[in-house]
Design a protein around this nucleic acid. Structure first.
Lengths: 237, 237
DNA sequence: CGGTGTCTTGATTCTCATCAATTACTGTGG
DNA sequence: CCACAGTAATTGATGAGAATCAAGACACCG
């Protein structure tokens, strides 16, 4: 990772919490204590079990947040893109990260150490309030998907996963704006790569999904989403 | 529900966030704006889809938080007991609850409306900070269990669920200090009542679990927990 | 052109959800 | 105090779905 400097003032991530409160003097005081990193595609920048060194804001690029088991299975917990926060779960009481994170494409990261961030939050209660709501929101999304996950069929898991990926990265020229391996999709959907391929093949035959090389496209989101029974409803997040 | 008054000053729930900051003047100002309710066993006090009317703190008793599907299946998201918070996910951006909650035993609830709570949080930033950490903590626990859930076997789900219940309510005289129906256990573990019974029967035969009437006991937590593969590790919460 | 890794498909085995039937438990009214 | 009804708990049988294994297709790269 190389250190550079990408200022908050010129940043155009309108969904960034810091950016939202950039006009407050208390926030501006701390901008200089931000660290910025370049992270190449595939590179891991948070390692499960490593000491927490604060939060990361994604300036540009995309990352996956995942956890690995002893048996080398891995589980992708979330995808994140520019403007979003990574590593926030290590915040507060934790001393080591309980997740890993790696870049899906070349990514620029802004880092605040926990100490700096805590100080900043106390100086700017409005920012703190938004952080609280952010966590509450994340919690809601997490719980909404969480348990229900165990009752979905494989087909539903994959459809749910693809819908999520589409909502996160969007489509461009008819194809999802992010190329993921079958394995990543499987790790995200909570099944095996084999099953993902089966379901994708079936969906292609049904005309619900199109593919060009590794790129996947969803021609009709409405119909695609209707494939989910109401019991496994999709939540963006 | 009957309105009564249970004061925060005489409350002995040391894990209550309000109680923790009871010495602050800003907090004390708002104590009078708390509503207190009695809720009988089995009674529902939060209804999915109903307008949010704030947060509940459990003064005494125990509750289940759940969600119902169109097909009348229900999914228990969490158990909570005295000192803990219920309804916090409706906080912030939501206007209707996305969960239901019912009392598992006779329960006394303290309610703050969202308006009052938001005002109080802004007046007492330290309380707000703890709220933020509370949400962060909940998020971590939720995500830790969430996805992995989909990959557990039924046996693991039930064991995981029982371990959770034990950690929440504890054991007394060798038996878990809360009587739950097989259905509740099933709804919590994410499987059917049938399967729960099968697994419980098997565990009893293996000597890992004991039963007296409806009461269940775990003689050796250590050995019991070892039944979980490392891939589905247990997290208290 | 071999080698490596991902992708894809088929076949087999096993688990689990579901249904059905039986037994235990609980409360209610006569 | 008992008979009864309704609910919860338990066990068995069966079919659908999914995990797993294995092998072939394909692309990419030196």
């Amino acid at each position: 990772m190389q250190a550079n400097n990408y200022g908050c003032l010129t940043c155009d991530n309108t969904n960034c919490l810091i950016k939202k409160h950039i006009d407050k003097e208390a926030v501006q005081e701390y901008l200089g204590r931000k660290n910025t990193f370049n992270c190449n595609q595939g590179q891991q920048f948070i390692l499960e079990g490593a000491p927490v060194n604060g939060l990361y804001f994604i300036y540009s690029g995309a990352v996956k947040v995942y956890r690995q088991t002893a048996t080398k299975e891995s589980q992708i917990i979330r995808f994140s893109r520019n403007g979003e926060i990574v590593g926030h779960r290590g915040f507060g009481t934790n001393y080591v990260y309980d997740i890993s994170a790696a870049a899906l494409s070349d990514t620029i990261l802004c880092n605040f150490t926990s100490d700096v961030l805590i100080e900043m939050l106390h100086k700017a209660p409005e920012l703190m309030f938004d952080f609280m709501l952010f966590y509450a929101d994340q919690l809601q999304k997490s719980e909404a998907n969480a348990k229900r996950f165990g009752q979905m069929t494989v087909r539903e898991k994959v459809i749910n996963g693809l819908l999520f990926i589409e909502s996160k990265f969007g489509q461009k020229d008819g194809y999802i704006n992010m190329i993921l391996s079958r394995r990543d999709i499987a790790d995200f959907a909570g099944t095996s790569a084999d099953q993902v391929i089966r379901v994708i093949s079936a969906l292609k035959k049904e005309g619900l999904l199109i593919a060009k090389g590794k790129k996947l496209g969803i021609p009709d989101l409405q119909i695609f989403a209707e494939q989910l029974q109401e019991r496994s409803y999709f939540l963006e997040g």
